[in-house]
Simulated assay, not measured.
Amino acid sequence: MSPQQKALVLPRKQGNFELSSRSIPSPGAGELLVKIQSAALNPFDYKIRNTDYVPHYPVVLGMDIAGIVEELGEGVHNFRRGDRVLAHGKFTNDFTAFQQYALTVASFTAKIPASESFDSAATVPLGLDTAVVGLYGDQLGASITPPWEEGAGDHESKKPIVILGGSSSVGAYTIQLARLSGFYPIITTASPSNEELVKGYGATHFFDRNLSGKQLLAAISEVTDDPIKLVYDAISLPETQSVAWELLADNGTLVLTLPASVKEDEGKGRRVVTTLSYPHTPENEELCSSSWARVEEWLSDGTIKPNKYEVLPNGLEGIIGGLERMKLGQVSGTKLVAHPQQTQ
């Protein structure tokens, strides 16, 4: 195997992506080296260019990894060379997705069942982890008892949940976990063209995303008399947060994926929490290790369905145009996936 690989690199803040070459890393204890077959794109990957989040440049981005195990680090016993795997990347260049080889952490890596392709598997990691932490995280989520924990029972059974942006990657996984937790009704918003898509994920009631907060509240009141104690805003723009805040009952929780523009001190004991999809942070390690131990089974038995996806042409170079389309709002209900090994 060549010691060098191709990678898509962002050389500087507000710079332009460039195709470059970098060394293929070696796995340490608890790590795997994966030959990446499919890498999925996320909004974070274009938004980060204009932030101060990146401590060092050049940087390789991408969090959604699917590929083949090439090497095992010390202490990794539940994988073998040649296994097809998916993994949630880590914000360190050797562990990111927009390159041909990456390291993964065994705790946040799972085997891909025969029923799924590399492409479908690549749509899972970041979206699913954002849904898991947002619903079940103690510090960075709504602190609901995970359905796989003993004693979870029917805690959420017959309680309503509203998920804004149900056709987004995070929204789709949140709908599926809400179903697993026993929420009912599972109410979501999306574009009318995505109604069947979100119902396929498990939403019981669909409303047009263009409804105002008052219109949506009126529509929901015809579905359930119960107070809405949990709203998951998978979009989290100021306008969707405003709608979510109108829906949320006293002492309820609003889960966001971006910083809050609504104020908790606007009353009624309502809590706002901005979740963090990153499984590698200490607050999330235990929860995400537990969920990742179930990912292969969930995919195999259909408990979790991956996102719809579109494959981009031209390997890593195709990511550049894909991110621009996402930035311009030209992608809906679909995850974009690149094939790093096809890079010319």
Rank of each mutant, 00 (worst) to 15 (best):
H280T: 10
L258F: 14
A293G: 02
K263F: 08
W298C: 04
K308R: 15
K305P: 01
W292L: 04
S289F: 04
T274L: 03
E283P: 06
V272Y: 03
Y278Q: 10
K268S: 11
S289G: 09
D265T: 12
S291K: 00
S290Q: 15
G269Y: 04
N284R: 11
P313L: 01
S261I: 07
L299R: 07
L258E: 13
L287W: 02
Y309H: 15
T274E: 15
G269I: 00
V255E: 10
E286K: 15
T257V: 15
E283K: 10
V255H: 10
P306Y: 14
G302K: 09
G267H: 05
R270M: 01
E283Y: 06
V311M: 07
N307T: 07
T274S: 11
E285M: 13
E266R: 10
T303Q: 12
K263G: 03
L256H: 13
D265C: 09
V255G: 11
S290G: 15
S277D: 09
N314I: 01
Y278F: 12
V262P: 06
S291R: 07
L287A: 00
P282I: 07
R270W: 01
R294E: 06
E266Y: 08
C288Y: 01
E310K: 05
T303L: 11
L316P: 04
K263V: 02
V262S: 00
A260T: 05
K308M: 09
V255P: 12
L256K: 12
H280D: 09
S291F: 15
L299H: 05
P279Y: 04
G302H: 04
P259G: 13
G302R: 05
G315S: 05
N314V: 00
N307S: 15
L258V: 08
Y309D: 01
G315Q: 04
S289P: 00
S261C: 12
E283T: 09
W292F: 14
E283G: 03
L312I: 01
V262W: 01
T274K: 12
P259L: 13
S277K: 02
G267S: 08
L287K: 00
L312G: 00
Y278L: 14
D301Q: 02
S277Q: 07
S289E: 10
V262E: 10
K268E: 11
K308L: 14
Y309K: 06
L258I: 06
L299C: 03
P279I: 03
D265Q: 13
V295P: 04
R294M: 10
P259V: 11
E283D: 12
L276N: 15
P306R: 11
A260D: 06
V272D: 01
W292N: 08
T274P: 04
L258M: 14
L299M: 08
V255D: 09
E297D: 12
E296Q: 14
L256E: 13
